[in-house]
Simulated scan of single mutants.
Amino acid sequence: MATTRMHFSGQLSDLDLRHLRVFKTVVESGGFAAAEAELNVTGSAISQSMSDLEKRLGFKLCNRGRSGFSLTEAGRQTYDNTLELLASLDTFRSQINAIHSYLKGEFRIGITDNLITMRRMRIVHSLQSLKRQAPEVTINIRMLPPNEIEKGVLNGVFHIGMVPKFRTCPGLDYYPIYDEQWGLYCGEVHPLFSVADAELKVSDVEALDAVEAAYAQPESIREQYARFKTSAIASDREGTAFLIMTGCFVGFLPTHYAEGWVEQGVMRRLLPEEFGFVVEYVAITRPSDMNNMILTSYLEGLRVTK
């Protein structure tokens, strides 16, 4: 018997949009189980929503089972189309809000960890400005590694991201926000912790076991790490701090992040004139998102905040 191929027809309903948002979250979470916490619903509810969506569209979106979660080719195309659709809805909502002379909706931000200790709190103050100007806007912040934030801004998951500028990506606009000073540190039980600065030799410091950063960095910073004997690797600055505190390693940290431990006497910066570098932090957006009035308002606050 011949099978009748189904095609999507009829009006796009609120239920369709809810199913598409569930599908988007499942894809970005990497599967049904991980999406439960993000959506705050049961696995059976997610499974039912996905099943209803597949029936509505007329094709299979994903494979799930013992082998894990993966998208079908149709699922990958549907995910891309869903991102475009939801981004268009955000733009439409923002434009309609502008007609009513107030801002309303969700503002999604991706931020790299551990910037809260920066003395120049431009992110804090610009968020404060947005909330005061647009009290009905819902602010949604996620803390992620820089590469995931870049990807999120490019595909519309985030309206804006705050990342170190290690490279430039086509399709993104960049707005400078911070210059972050980094220094070399050891912990209080490290053999060099109590050695006077005048007695420290560069060659002795360079011979120490050091923590290397696992993420991509420009060559100028890599040259600083290359001066040491790498015997540990950390994916982020908190992991580096843990290893420094063992007293077995030296490692680079942002000075604002390490400041509290230095004041407590559990960390020490080594030869500041010799070891250190500066990382530029930027806000990133997509040029196509500049019609979003919430984003435009936030960027204005970010520019005027010192």
Rank of each mutant, 00 (worst) to 15 (best):
G301Y: 00
T78C: 08
M267P: 10
E84N: 15
R120G: 14
V304Q: 09
R5A: 14
A74W: 02
R18W: 01
E199G: 00
W261N: 03
T25D: 06
M121W: 03
R56D: 03
A198E: 12
D90M: 12
E259N: 11
A258R: 01
K151N: 15
L271Q: 07
Q11D: 12
E223H: 13
A234M: 03
D80M: 11
T305A: 15
C62S: 11
A241L: 10
H159E: 13
M1F: 09
G58V: 02
I294H: 06
M121G: 15
I160M: 10
F166N: 10
S101P: 00
D14P: 01
I141Q: 12
V26N: 09
R93I: 04
R108A: 11
A98F: 07
N147V: 14
E150S: 08
T117K: 11
L53G: 02
I149Y: 01
A214E: 12
C62E: 01
F277Y: 14
H19N: 14
Q224W: 05
P170K: 15
L243S: 05
Y174W: 06
G30V: 04
L192D: 04
A2N: 09
F242A: 13
E273P: 07
S101D: 15
A87I: 05
R93A: 07
N292A: 04
N140M: 10
A214G: 08
N81I: 05
L271E: 01
D236N: 12
Y225Q: 11
W261L: 10
I284M: 07
S51A: 08
F228A: 01
L270A: 03
H125S: 14
F249N: 11
Q48F: 11
A283G: 15
V26K: 06
L20C: 00
H190N: 13
D209N: 15
V22N: 08
D113H: 15
L192C: 04
Y178E: 15
G301W: 00
H7R: 11
R222H: 08
V282T: 08
P135Y: 06
L83C: 10
R119S: 12
L39E: 11
